[in-house]
Simulated scan of single mutants.
Amino acid sequence: MTASLKDTRILITGAGSGIGRATSLKLHELGAHVFLTDINLDGVQETEKRCASQESPASTSSAKLNVADKAAVEAYVESITKDGAKIDHVFNCAGVNPTSYKLEETTDEYWDKLMSVNLRGVYNVTRATIPHMASPGGSYVNVSSINGVHAYANQAIYCATKWGLIGFSKSMALELGPRGIRTNVVAPGYIDTPTNAGIVKGGEYVERMAKGNSLGRLGQPEEVADVVAFLMSNDARYMNGSVLEIDGGLKG
């Protein structure tokens, strides 16, 4: 795995915390040159600082990026592909976590926010990077959720974005596969990240999440990062259009 990622160039969105940060560190540790982006500049700069402290010769860069902003995404991609430089892999991790609302209490603003980041953001990044992807050998890994394969009451909008992302990704796999560019999806369950709504609430919510899977604990961001690194590696060279649930054995 290490050899197949060494000296690759990987664009990561949502790199400022949680799964995005853990994956950035993992990929950089494996020798990949990482291009770190997040809407939170302080967060993504901290991720870059942590990458730079690793014993890895690979380069790092960080930038503030709102994936919902088409023009900003296109400008950023152009800036990292000057002189014909290729992108080997893209990790579409930027997203907005859910807030529980009954449908009749959901606002248009909430709908627009989740759709613009969770779906349109991936669309913007994908469309902008396709012309610059290594072909063959390139890959995308997109972040869905257990909410993308299991429906939950009071989270209809979030579920819609994450189910939609899986459909979008499977279509990507069919369209880009003939070029030798793979697309796969990770669907994390209850992961211990700062933006997880249950973690924010704490107490009984954390306990409920931990008991919600057969391993009886929350997942760690690093455990998702390991799967992402695998999907980008040559070890997963025949995986295309796959959805990997990382949920500790979800109950029910």
Rank of each mutant, 00 (worst) to 15 (best):
S4Q: 05
L5E: 10
R9N: 13
I10Q: 01
G14A: 00
A15I: 12
A15L: 09
I19P: 15
G20E: 09
A22R: 13
L27D: 15
E29L: 05
E29W: 08
L30T: 15
A32C: 07
V34D: 08
V34I: 13
L36I: 06
T37W: 01
T37M: 00
I39G: 04
Q45E: 15
K49G: 12
A52H: 03
S56H: 04
S56T: 12
P57C: 00
A58W: 03
S62K: 05
V67L: 00
D69Q: 04
A71I: 14
A75P: 14
Y76V: 03
S79C: 02
S79V: 04
T81W: 08
K82F: 06
D83S: 08
G84Y: 07
G84F: 05
A85K: 13
A85Q: 14
I87F: 11
C93G: 10
A94H: 10
G95R: 09
N97C: 11
P98C: 01
E105F: 02
D108Y: 03
D108E: 09
W111R: 02
Y123C: 04
R127W: 10
A128K: 01
A128E: 02
T129N: 01
I130M: 00
M133D: 11
M133V: 09
A134Y: 10
S135L: 03
P136D: 01
G137M: 05
S139H: 07
Y140E: 07
V143K: 02
V143D: 06
S144D: 12
S144V: 08
S145T: 12
N147R: 07
G148F: 03
G148S: 06
H150F: 14
A153H: 08
N154F: 09
N154C: 07
Y158S: 11
A160T: 13
T161D: 09
T161Y: 03
W163K: 11
F168Q: 12
S169A: 12
S169L: 02
A173G: 13
L174S: 14
L176R: 09
L176A: 06
G180T: 09
I181Y: 09
R182P: 15
T183C: 07
T183A: 07
V185I: 13
V186P: 14
P188Y: 04
P188Q: 00
G189W: 04
G189E: 04
I191L: 06
N196S: 10
A197R: 14
I199A: 01
V200H: 08
G203L: 02
M209Y: 11
M209D: 11
A210D: 10
A210L: 04
L215H: 05
G216Y: 00
R217T: 03
E222D: 15
E223G: 13
D226R: 08
V227Q: 11
V227S: 06
V228T: 10
F230I: 14
L231M: 07
D235N: 05
Y238W: 11
Y238S: 04
N240A: 04
V243H: 05
L244A: 15
E245R: 05
E245G: 05
I246S: 04
K251C: 02
